[in-house]
């Protein structure tokens, strides 16, 4: 490692190096209420998106 590399290295925080960010963070532990809430959100998004897309396509014709 050159002197220039050493100097550059000092300007980065250790956890922002590519080798560090390539390591995945541990999965979060979600409680049953959070999981139900997330599933509800997905169902909401899919249903409303389907309605908007159906309306969009129907009005094209």
């Amino acid at each position: 490692m050159s002197e220039e590399d050493d100097e550059l290295f000092m300007h980065l925080e250790r956890d922002q190096l590519v080798a560090e960010t390539a390591r995945p963070v541990p999965p979060a532990r979600l409680g049953p209420r959070a999981l139900i809430g997330l599933w509800g959100l997905r169902v909401f998004a899919i249903l409303v998106s389907a309605m908007v897309l159906y309306t969009f396509l129907a009005r094209l014709h």
Partner: peptide, 12 residues
């Protein structure tokens, strides 16, 4: 440890 990639160099 092995750390500095080309991306790190540019960012640093």
């Amino acid at each position: 440890q092995p750390l500095l990639s080309e991306e790190d160099h540019a960012r640093s």
